[in-house]
Write a protein that binds this DNA or RNA. Sequence first.
DNA 1: CTCCCGATAT
DNA 2: ATATCAGGAG
Length: 212
Amino acid sequence: MLSKAEIEQFCEALHEVHPDPKCELIWHTPWELIMAIILSAQSTDKNVNRVTPELFKGVPTPKKAVELGEDGVRPFVKSVNYFNNKTRSIVALAQKLLDEYNGEMPTDFDTLVTLPGIGRKTASVFLNVAYHKPYIGVDTHVFRLAHRLKLCTGKTPAEVQEKLEKIIPEKYKTGFALALVLLGRYICQARKPKCGECPLYTICQADEKEKK
DNA sequence: CTCCCGATAT
DNA sequence: ATATCAGGAG
């Protein structure tokens, strides 16, 4: 496991590589963002961005989602995996927003995770991306890199999130998850990580590394 | 724990 | 053919 000083060094190096990391999902409103994040479960951002232009046009508000119902919304997300679950989540979420939240997305974590289709990761990403709040959502990339790079251990994403939010210095916390996802997506991939192209190679503590 | 379940890379 | 992609619900 990395020492406190090594964590600091890692954060600084990651920050230099991605000074202002941005979410690659396309969105314009909180409603659009939450739909995009729901669709992004076990899917590439690229695949999500392919369907969202039509989705945003056809389902621009929670009100419209409820009017269309599941059968009306499903065609817009048909080419994304788990489309039945995701369609159900979008319509149920819209209904609850209309019933209890004046048709608008709440902005606190504890409320968000009570909503249909929204768990810890989705809530964290929503608050981090939309409002730059210091949440570290633990998706497949963050979970993998946290262990591979020896940032911390943890059997569940919730455990890893709790530890990361404790050990990552405040200064780096807001950009951390996004930067780590970008590193994991394009360099430190699950299969065949591109160590030869990695800007963090010299400080990387992974057990197995390609030679550079 | 299982189920959901399309597109893409290897 | 199999692994992987910003997971959540039951």
